[in-house]
Amino acid sequence: MTRWHVARLVKVRDENATARTLVFDVPGWPGHLAGQHVDVKLTAGDGYSARRSYSLAGPEGVELTVQRVPDGEVSPYLTLDMEPGDELELRGPVGGWFVWRPDGPAPVLLVAGGAGIVPLMAMIRARRAAGADTPFRLVYAVRSPERLCYADELLRPDPGVSVTLAYTRRVPEGHPRPPGRLTAADLGPYGEADCYVCGPTGFVEASAALLVGLGHDPARIRTERFGPTGD
């Protein structure tokens, strides 16, 4: 049975103007696999509590990247107000389906929509930490350059990892791909791979359909959806 841990915020890092990475100290954390998530519980003074799920962003320790949702109940607190030393309750690691293990031999295709990058970044980091040579390809769909997470890390060369950025609304100057939704051309050509797709529900449905259309085996496409708002 998974219990609630008390987590103390030790460090924050802004990823962009609306997303922030929070690093927590969680005594007794048992370790986790890349792709797993935690459930976070915030309790107000009057006893009202709100729960949300957030993916772990790295292969070790409890590091969450949270996208601020305007009018959200939880994400504004996590991205604006919470300060080092503050505590919250979290449960995890949970979710053994949407995970990648460094001993997996098959090439990997990661497809991220917006904040869906977080568990996929954990997989890229886990690959690097393990010194694995599994070929990785990331296709990251994001609204505009201002919304990119982990930009410096993704643009730095990482042997065996190829990164394709697909801006959906606005591109930076000189970017070769015009803005627009993800297409089969972004995800192709077909190559045998274990596929991981994470993003908002509509994005996941559309991307998984494109992958099947390219010839990927549906049984090798793992998906994780977050709600209409993510908060």
Partner: peptide
């Protein structure tokens, strides 16, 4: 609701049981 989550979201609540 038009948008749904998926069973990954059940992992935490079911881990309680």
């Amino acid at each position: 609701q038009a948008d749904h989550l998926d069973g990954n979201a059940l992992a935490g609540p079911l881990a309680e049981i």
